[in-house]
Nucleic acid binder design. Structure first.
Lengths: 203, 203
DNA sequence: CAAAATGATTAACACCGTTAAGTTAGTTGA
DNA sequence: TCAACTAACTTAACGGTGTTAATCATTTTG
């Protein structure tokens, strides 16, 4: 399984899987559908991916990179830790709402699934959280933020963001509030919880 | 479908479905397994539940009631809005972690699923959030809390709690932090975001 | 040239939700 | 009493799923 990454068919499989994922969603993504679409038999996929897990893990990988790029761009837009954090929060939620299929396989799918996710890839996924943690740390150093444990704070921020994304995109949240209202509220909630002087709520 | 709720077999089906849900989890819950366990054919279930959705919705219903009882108990333990809210937050997270299968079908499962969830049941599910909102409102009236929109604040709190539950129970969260640490941090995060005077962080 | 490796296939297994048709037993009404 | 009807349940089947084993060409290598 998983031989030369560029051996033609493997790339085609991954491309088709990605396309199906983003069009019909994970629930409708099947080995047979991928195979049909490219004119191969379903079992051919198993020559390049040991099982469906491996294939989805490859897609998760892409999602992690995609999110990383978004977060990095947000993080580099400004020098101010507060703005960096705020922009990253917005970028995170936007990613979750704009690419729900990626978000689903990355962060929503069954725990069983993620258990089998290789440890090395785990580390890459953690970069994203670390980037937020370092913005918080910078804010603390700069005296604008207050946090006894920036990593814990980053995890709390993540929980807030993740909860927001999932409740929003599953339409479980109160429809009286617009998407924009909820995004703003989430971000200012996170920022305010870190500010030394929360009176300045110009988020 | 869904005739007399107490027509014997219907109850047995629901009981067995619940038992399978809590033992093997939703992913392993199938019509055929339920049927096998009670010695009937799978199609017999369709005499009492139109499809798997209906059956799962009945289970979701139970979960909603279960959570409601927990939240109500927490809400009635004290008169102080802050304590009420704090206890409800803890109760919510505990429910999510102690009954992950219920929590999954209630709040994690595919959006498609919840779309088909009947509107009347939706209302019942909303009671839970309203109870938190009213504790916040009481806190605002009492002058301890600050919130321009208690319902929005309740939704933010919910997002934080939901994010915490899902990240924790899917073990996506940093393992350096104990479950207890994360629960405490989530709750104090929520409370602090509402306090007029956040200096008193004795949560 | 024969042997081995490569890349793909077909057939099959064991599941899944669901539908249609059939069976069996019990009740009702003329 | 006996035919008609109804309720409760079953079997068979459809189309779908992930996955494995066996097979068949084709190409590469010794």
């Amino acid at each position: 399984m998983s031989r030369d990454p560029d051996s033609g068919l493997q790339r085609i499989i991954l491309d088709t899987a990605r396309q199906l994922l983003t069009t019909v969603g994970y629930a409708q993504l099947s080995m047979r559908k991928i195979a049909n679409k490219i004119g191969y038999s379903a079992t051919s996929i198993y020559l390049y991916y040991g099982n469906k897990d491996e294939l989805v893990h490859a897609l998760i990988d892409e999602g992690v990179d995609l999110l990383y790029e978004e977060l990095k761009a947000a993080n580099e837009k400004s020098k101010d830790p507060l703005e960096r954090l705020r922009d990253m929060c917005v970028a995170y939620i936007r990613f979750g709402l704009d690419r729900p299929e990626y978000y689903e396989i990355m962060y929503v799918l069954h725990p069983e699934y993620i258990t089998r996710y290789p440890a090395e890839k785990y580390r890459k996924a953690r970069r994203n959280l670390e980037m937020m943690a370092s913005a918080i740390t910078d804010g603390v150093i700069g005296g604008k933020f207050e946090s006894t444990d920036p990593v814990l704070s980053a995890n709390m921020a993540w929980a807030q963001l993740h909860g927001g994304v999932t409740l929003l995109s599953s339409e479980r949240v109160d429809k009286r509030f617009s998407e924009d209202t909820l995004i703003r509220a989430s971000c200012s909630q996170i920022i305010r919880s870190l500010l030394v002087n929360p009176k300045s709520v110009e988020v």
